[in-house]
Design a protein around this nucleic acid. Structure first.
Length: 478
DNA sequence: TCTGGGGTCCTAGGACCC
DNA sequence: TCTGGGGTCCTAGGACCC
């Protein structure tokens, strides 16, 4: 474990600008320069990312999509293409790892990099050159701009990357930390959310500078030991957290907000089963199993409950997770309506051969339980089709065409779904390297129209590639 | 305005153990 | 029995992050 040197600007925070929306504008020429909103497009959706053109209208992350639509009805509302985002993200992380092996991805669009192992004497000039080179390579390889913040710690790097977004590099020299942080609003400090900011403001603390001179005992009384003293340390620019390149997941979960509240326990049990299946598949894919099964229930009034049960052995069996989730669900009154249900597994460990055998036995045992329960109560095991299987709100299509989705037409080639409804689907035929494309409308069950792969973005040739003689390029291509 | 889905970490109380 | 002092595990809830 390596801690960053607090006297040198060796930590980078990388943050792709308006990431999901930027990928959409890259791949869809007709959306460039226009407001684009990516997120839940249904009744109960929220905004994941708004392009800068959409932010002008007041649209931002976590805002209900309904509200965004009122603010800017003419924006493009897209459901998101996470496979495409993942490809771009992996490429950026790869480029980051060329700077240093100490890269800690925080999400698809953010990561920390610690340069201090390989550049122990790094200074502002050197890190500036490294970071600018990196930003250029990201733009060439992905067509996207990335903001980079640099400081002596994760904390300072993170704050710096946000200071002049988009498409900016901000280096905070260790000697200027206090001056830079002091005047900033308390809310810009990572770990200060709506609740903490509110409480601090009520104590007359508005800026990071105010917080830096606050009384520690008082903060600990108000916010608890860890949060109270952590807050003060952060405000003073103290952050010894290392950049960690490999972190093990601690839990795996799946959850869903329903288009309309569910009240039938059998519907909920069936939904829980499907979520348990997905969780089990992901556990298996990452080679882990877990001892604690948790369900999450959000009621009609947004109050949220968690119920968990810890098993004697870790499991990754879909049947066992389903059975435990069903038991936990049975203990909750759902008559007034449930808007969200989730199933999760925590207490993860890498699984062994004996776990695999135990899972097989657990599958059988759980199946028997089901059968036994079915004999006692026929209704419970009937294959009940889920009642509220309606599409996830308007204007998503009944046929399942999602706005923004990649498609291929037998005659017209690759394009994307611009909208759908009343038995029709509208497609725009364009890609990242075409001019703005034409729109065509089809029946939503047109056999010539299929879901397609994400378009491939062609990186700009780099200066060094242009210098290489033609025959060398051909050899490299073979 | 009416609130996603995937996570992390912390707190606090009770059970249980030595 | 007018009553210790940890430590760990489990459960539930909450703040926060992207």
């Amino acid at each position: 474990m390596h801690h960053p040197d607090p006297t040198r600007p060796g930590v980078l925070h990388l943050d792709l600008d308006a990431f999901f929306a930027a990928v959409e504008q890259r791949d869809k020429p007709s959306l460039r320069g226009r407001p684009v909103v990516v997120g839940g497009t249904g009744w109960r959706g929220v905004v994941a990312t708004a392009s800068y053109e959409a932010r002008v209208f007041g649209i931002g992350s976590a805002m209900p999509t309904q509200q965004a639509r009122r603010l800017c009805p003419n924006a493009a509302y897209l459901a998101g293409r996470f496979d495409a985002y993942r490809v771009v993200s992996e490429r950026v992380m790869e480029l980051a790892r060329e700077l240093s092996p100490l890269v800690e991805p925080m999400s698809l669009d953010e990561a920390y990099v610690d340069l201090s192992v390989e550049h122990p004497a790094i200074d502002v000039a050197e890190v500036t050159a490294i970071a600018e080179g990196f930003r250029e390579r990201v733009l060439a390889a992905t067509g996207l701009t990335i903001s980079v913040g640099v400081g002596a710690s994760k904390l300072v790097a993170k704050i710096a990357s946000d200071l002049r977004k988009p498409d900016a590099l901000v280096v905070v020299p260790p000697g200027e930390q206090a001056e830079v942080l002091g005047p900033l609003a308390i809310r810009t400090l990572p770990g200060v959310g709506a609740v903490t900011a509110d409480r601090l403001t009520r104590s007359g603390i508005r800026t990071i500078g105010d917080l830096a001179v606050a009384d520690e005992a008082e903060l600990v009384r108000t916010f608890g030991k860890a949060h109270g003293s952590g807050l003060l340390a952060f405000a003073r620019g103290i952050d010894p957290r290392p950049v960690v390149s490999e972190r093990e997941a601690k839990s795996v979960s799946a959850e869903e907000t329903f288009a309309t509240d569910l009240t039938d326990p059998r519907d909920l049990a069936e939904r829980a089963r499907r979520m348990a299946d997905r969780v089990a598949a992901r556990l298996a894919a990452s080679g882990v199993s877990g001892r604690t099964v948790t369900i999450k229930v959000r009621r009609y009034d947004f109050t949220t409950l968690n119920r968990s049960r810890t098993l004697t052995r870790a499991t990754s069996s879909a049947a066992e997770i389903t059975a435990r989730a069903a038991e936990l669900l049975a203990g909750i009154d759902v008559a007034d309506g449930v808007r969200l249900l989730g199933v999760g597994v925590s207490g993860l460990t890498e699984f062994s051969q004996t776990d695999l055998l135990a899972d097989l036995l657990a599958d059988e045992a759980a199946a028997e339980e089901q059968t036994a329960a079915g004999d006692a109560d026929e209704a419970a095991t009937e294959e009940t089709p889920v009642a509220s299987e309606q599409p996830y709100g308007p204007p998503a299509a009944a046929a399942g065409w999602r706005p923004g989705q990649d498609v291929v037409h037998a005659e017209h080639g690759p394009g994307w779904v611009q909208g759908s409804g009343v038995g029709r689907v509208t497609v725009r035929f364009e890609g990242p390297h075409t001019p703005v494309g034409r729109i065509r409308t089809f029946a939503d069950d047109d056999p010539d129209l299929e879901p397609g792969p994400p378009p491939v973005f062609q990186p700009a040739p780099t200066a060094s590639q242009l210098e290489v003689p033609t025959h060398a390029v051909q050899e490299a291509a073979e």
